[in-house]
């Protein structure tokens, strides 16, 4: 079965990049532009993996992860956040909030797919 991935990022270019790389790797991809929309989409359908940016308007990634981990349905759903090498503080906070892993920006498609496979186990 195709694993389904939700990407949450306010940057259209990152969303496009994620979608292309993940689709090419055989995953099905849904998109949200901020944390609030991410939660709405995750409520509406179950995803095997959520990839999210941290800095976003309306609701940032950190808040989204915290909220999701409080939702019984989202328990155990892997959430990978995108981060830059420079924000170690964010990394620690995101992990504390319940993130599964991270992907350091900039990344190329191989790295992205590697992380998706790593977290999904397939």
């Amino acid at each position: 079965m195709t694993a389904s991935i939700l990407t949450v990022d306010d940057s259209p270019s990152i969303r496009v990049a994620l979608k292309i790389a993940l689709t090419n790797a055989g995953y099905s991809v849904a998109e949200a532009v901020n944390g609030a929309e991410g939660i709405e989409k995750a409520k509406a359908s179950a995803f095997d993996l959520i990839i999210t940016d941290l800095n976003m308007p309306v609701m940032d990634g950190l808040t989204m992860i915290e909220e999701m981990r409080r939702m019984p349905d989202q328990m155990g759903v892997p959430i990978v956040f995108l981060t830059t090498e420079s924000d170690e503080g964010f990394k620690a906070r995101a992990k504390a909030a319940g993130a599964t892993g991270w992907l350091t920006k900039p990344f190329d498609p191989d790295q992205l797919v590697r992380v998706a496979k790593k977290v999904l186990g397939r």
Binding site: R69, G76, K95, T100, V119
Partner: peptide
């Protein structure tokens, strides 16, 4: 680990 989506099988 389970709550946060870490997958030991992976």
């Amino acid at each position: 680990a389970f709550k946060n989506g870490a997958n030991p099988l992976a």
